[in-house]
């Protein structure tokens, strides 16, 4: 424990990793809650998987590992995947779930092919690109965090500024269009934000588990509130806590990957919320039902007694 505290307060490296994973938690928590309500969480999954070929292509072009270039590559193929899904859905009879599956596997498969090619080359052998599959939080350094912080701040600012527009577009797209909002522009903008949130997270959590960071904090937050703004806030907090706690646990146990721990922590928040949230949680629902039944029984007994008393008179 003492080691852990020393690490947190004195080891700059651990501090950067902690800050990085918390930022990724906030960004994916905030964007994830809107994506969840727009039923676009799985598009986030496809986008995350589609980041892999972009990372590989960027590396092949550049020949060295520069995070910002790799992430730009990830952004481009991620956006392309999101666009392909929307294109398929609006121009064919293929449904969204099928389109997502199709695009996810095609892009990820292509990414794996490229990854194999990269690791066969001499430079690529030690590139560590395969870290992007499951994430490698320990590799986060100060410059990466500055990049992540900048991107996360942009995401949160845009979400805050366009909160009202995104809200009405999510709840009632037809009405939003009727108000004169540019729906297709806002849809594209939101997809771009979602892609950015994914890209912020893949270094630490990896392309496979990134979708969990979009879905889990958001669905956990939904249990605690009936207000969109609070849901976004809680989801961001759950995301940040998951990032922090996951990182701390993996720091304690040497040799265990951070990304999966972050996801497991988020899942823990979800289970707690599902069981114990006031009103919506399973336990409270059961308790309320029992109380209600008891009250009805008592009232029936009272009525009976009253009637009984009347007859005696």
């Amino acid at each position: 424990m003492k080691d852990l505290l020393t690490m947190i307060f004195h080891d700059a490296n651990t501090q950067w990793v902690l800050l990085g994973t918390m930022l990724l938690g906030v960004a994916s928590g905030v964007l994830g809650s809107i994506a969840l309500l727009r039923k676009q969480s799985l598009i986030g999954d496809a986008v995350a998987h589609a980041a892999l070929p972009g990372i590989c292509i960027a590396f092949l072009f550049l020949g060295e590992k520069s995070l910002i270039v790799l992430l730009i590559g990830a952004t481009i193929t991620g956006l392309l995947a999101a666009y392909c899904i929307q294109f398929i859905v609006s121009n064919s009879i293929i449904k969204e779930d099928t389109a997502i599956c199709l695009i996810l596997s095609v892009f990820f498969g292509f990414g794996i092919v490229l990854l194999t090619k990269v690791s066969q080359s001499s430079a690529g052998n030690k590139s560590g690109l395969d870290d992007f599959i499951f994430g490698q939080a320990a590799s986060i350094v100060g410059n990466d965090v500055k990049l992540m912080a900048g991107a996360a701040a942009c995401l949160i600012l845009i979400t805050f500024l366009l909160y009202k527009e995104l809200k009405v577009l999510t709840f009632d797209p037809e009405f939003a269009k009727g108000l004169g909002l540019p729906a297709s522009f806002l849809n594209f903008l939101f997809l771009s934000l979602l892609v950015a949130a994914v890209v912020i997270g893949i270094q630490a959590v990896g392309v496979i588990l990134m979708a969990a960071m979009l879905i889990t904090p958001a669905i956990a937050a939904r249990y605690w509130t009936n207000s969109l703004s609070k849901m976004i806030l809680i989801s961001g907090v759950f995301g940040a806590l998951s990032g922090m706690i996951g990182t701390l646990i993996s720091t304690l146990s040497v040799g265990l990957a951070t990304g999966p721990f972050i996801v497991v922590t988020a899942t823990f928040f979800f289970v707690i919320s599902m069981l114990f949230a006031p009103e919506r949680g399973l336990v409270m629902k059961r308790v309320k039902r029992i109380q209600f039944n008891k009250k009805i029984k008592e009232e029936l007994v009272l009525q009976k007694n009253r009637k009984g008393g009347y007859h005696e008179l």
Binding site: K164, T170, L181, N226, S227
Partner: peptide, 22 residues
């Protein structure tokens, strides 16, 4: 045409009618 499980209350939905003016 909408999902009524959306996390919001009646007043908030009615306020959406003001968004064009805001």
């Amino acid at each position: 045409s909408v999902d009524w499980d959306f996390p919001t209350n009646a007043l908030d939905v009615v306020l959406m009618g003001r968004y064009g003016h805001v």
